[in-house]
Design a protein around this nucleic acid. Structure first.
Lengths: 223, 223
DNA sequence: GCGAATAATACTTTATCCATAATTATGAAT
DNA sequence: ATTCATAATTATGGATAAAGTATTATTCGC
């Protein structure tokens, strides 16, 4: 028995993940038609798992399936991002609020550890490390909140903004700002102030969106 | 060209819808394994569109796909319902808040019309009519809020609780209570009080959950 | 010359087939 | 008698092929 792969991932999931990457990197441009045959040949697979992957992406809202017309990459506009971040701030805020109420002392210790990694990465200006630690912090909070369906919604939205989110850290001064916001959230958590934690998390998410807007504006100026 | 069917629905969508019905009606019981071959034979189709339908249902959270283990109907526990309604109250609350800010006078007129149907159905104790009007009211609110991604999340959750929601109206006195809550929400909307509308909508949703709990308890008493 | 209709081509959709992996049952050994 | 191992059967996952529908282009008629 091979000791390596514990969870044997299905091919359609692998394909779905690759397609997400290509959509977000704008390699597959918004609005363009997806040639199933060409893509299947490209990956060296048949169209069956590819089609299954497209069904999943469609229910995530990343592609639009027009019956008998094929599959098109969904356009993610600035307005879409506004809407998504707005909902995300609501959900993650709720997550923070519940976590503050539920967290055990051991949970808080774990959060402090992750936050320490965040501080460390920020000091070294290690953006990738910061991104990882940031992700870990939010994931930990969701585990503490322990609400399967709240998580379901958040994950769905996170898939859409994942790469944009990453990029937001490249905004001028965003790293320090994000760190400061995290300090505030952690303080509210350890201080057992649910409403404060919720409010600060909401602001933190919306602040991430604002950073993205700044980047978009800077890009437009260049272009 | 046939003038009737404007949107020729794909087979996998048809199958997905049928399966949703069967899952909610408990014809396909929670936790049971889905025999793909038997089901395909049952519908007189091949396994391919059935498998695509299952992928969609899986991303909706209705079934669980275990790699190489097959497909199982997701167990929706009382705790799941607690969690779902909790998130729903958050999302629909937000929806009400935004709608209150955005609604034009024409929008408010439309809401008043739908509410009139609700009053009408309640007077006649027409539960199905009440259910329809109730659905229409919430849908109208979502259209006014005009947030595609907020809607996406709500719809995802609504699929899961659709039938339970319907049943909640059969709870003793729930119809009158729901109507009273709707009056409050409409008042907040027309009075242009966003925060009040949000609060009342949240309470309305959670109140629907409470009605479900009462039904569950009554059933247990009988059984 | 323009418009409509028909035909052809191409892509989506569905079905059938094959291979691989997992589970269960049976047999043997302790 | 119970447990472990091996083999067989069954179901999932992937590929290929065939059929149906939509779109586009070309030709014919007005």
């Amino acid at each position: 028995m091979t000791a390596s792969r514990i969870a044997p991932l299905a091919l359609y999931q692998e394909v779905a993940e690759r397609l997400r990457q290509r959509i977000f990197s704008h390699e597959l441009q918004a609005g363009t038609w997806i040639d199933e045959q060409a893509l299947a040949d490209d990956y060296g697979i048949s169209r069956t798992p590819l089609r299954e992957a497209l069904k999943v992406l469609a229910s995530e809202g990343l592609v639009t399936l027009k019956p008998r017309r094929g599959c098109y990459v969904t356009e993610i506009s600035e307005r879409d991002l506004d809407e998504i971040f707005s909902v995300m701030s609501l959900l993650e805020g709720q997550c923070a609020q519940i976590s503050t109420k539920k967290a055990t002392d051991a949970d808080l210790d774990r959060l402090r550890q992750i936050h320490a990694q965040l501080e460390e990465a920020a000091k070294k200006e290690d953006i990738n490390g910061f991104f990882e630690a940031n992700q870990a912090f939010h994931t930990a909070l969701q585990e503490i909140a322990d609400n399967r369906w709240l998580l379901h919604c958040i994950e769905d939205l996170r898939k859409v903004i994942r790469l944009s989110r990453h990029h937001s850290l490249f905004s001028e001064g965003r790293l320090e700002q994000s760190l400061e916001e995290h300090r505030g959230i952690l303080a509210a958590l350890t201080g057992r102030e649910p409403d404060t934690a919720e409010l600060r998390m909401r602001e933190h998410i919306l602040s991430g969106r604002a950073a993205l807007v700044r980047i978009a504006k800077a890009k437009n100026k260049v272009a």
